[in-house]
Write a protein that binds this DNA or RNA. Sequence first.
DNA 1: TAGATTGTTAATCGATTAACAATC
DNA 2: TAGATTGTTAATCGATTAACAATC
Lengths: 220, 220
Amino acid sequence: MQERPSISKATVDRLPRYYRCLRQLSDEGGDIVSSEELGRRLAINPEQIRKDLTAFGQFGKKGVGYYVAELKESIGGILGLDQHLSLAIVGMGHLGAALANYQGIARLGFRLAAIFDSNPVVIGTRVGERRVEDIAYLAEIIAERNIQIGVIAVPAAQAQIAADQLIAAGIRGIWNFAPVKLHVPPSIPFVSEDLSVGLSALSYYLAHRGGESDVLSEKN
Amino acid sequence: MQERPSISKATVDRLPRYYRCLRQLSDEGGDIVSSEELGRRLAINPEQIRKDLTAFGQFGKKGVGYYVAELKESIGGILGLDQHLSLAIVGMGHLGAALANYQGIARLGFRLAAIFDSNPVVIGTRVGERRVEDIAYLAEIIAERNIQIGVIAVPAAQAQIAADQLIAAGIRGIWNFAPVKLHVPPSIPFVSEDLSVGLSALSYYLAHRGGESDVLSEKN
DNA sequence: TAGATTGTTAATCGATTAACAATC
DNA sequence: TAGATTGTTAATCGATTAACAATC
């Protein structure tokens, strides 16, 4: 799966939205969809959608459109959702709990394989069907359960330590929720989420009304 | 506060990062900072930073740099953080609880003024120093407490209803966490957060290794 | 066949980066 | 003054949109 034209982040960020929309269409019993219809539902230009897709191959039929089920599978494959990667959440505070209960993880095909915390009060408690493990066993559990993605949900001050531990344990990627700049080797892809950006942007648009609106951080 | 050149979303999204970095510098006792240093800390081009800032005015001193405290205040003002807007969270599930306990809200100067839920078991319980209110009283409490921002943390199926209620109650902006496309009048700015985009993007980068990495959803 | 819709190339638009004059 | 660094204009780069030939 080598792509010649390097794919832009903007394109990669639109793929999950195509994927979700296709699943909805599939659930609604949709068989075929045009870039036109997809664009209407997502508020994205049809030519943008076609452009994004052709970066990965030819998925449609001229004069017809795209087969919903087929395209959904294809995009899922491009995103690697068919790998059913395993996640470990580090930090079982309110945020960790919210993530552990977040339906989206399973819906995208990921498996929540471990939850870690360092607080003795929390260790051993159950979250959903998982037991919170002592972070002291992080390395061995990550290895044992073949966990590929580490989710950092600890306070900012501990985030780098958690990242280092995860990397030492052989994690392949990091999904970071701590508001810090993580230092991570270039071989480890990571994505940081920062809610304060979204809230600040909303505040900005409220303070500067008169212009247009609904400028979405992550459009749906 | 009228800006002539319409500001790009990319610029607006960088402002909170400048703001946070300036606060850190301020905490560290920093007095003056150059775009060079700011750029190093944020992994952003210095010329990008200067460009972003000049869209709002002239904040620096040639040959010197920017006064940390002054620039922090200026950016805070541009973002509207000095308004100390009030928020209401609708939906006290795991996500709502995480948001209610999210330090970033207060740190940016916002006030969490109300929490709503429809579940009788949850209504009346305390979250931090707030009591969970019956959603039946949403309209009057929003008005009474002069709440400007509604935070939607209900399941996808109820998100549009919550949005409609908030808007009817006179809310000015919406911060949406439900993975649905909200229909909102153009006069109401809203920002949607969608975690599945970040996780999917991470998955994509894991599936397509060999290229570069650390492509951050929201850089820190 | 006629109509529809993709895949792809070309044109446009906007954002980032580079360069440099102004000036502290 | 010499050195540093901003503010701003120009050059570059990349992403989006438009156009259209290919073809189902």
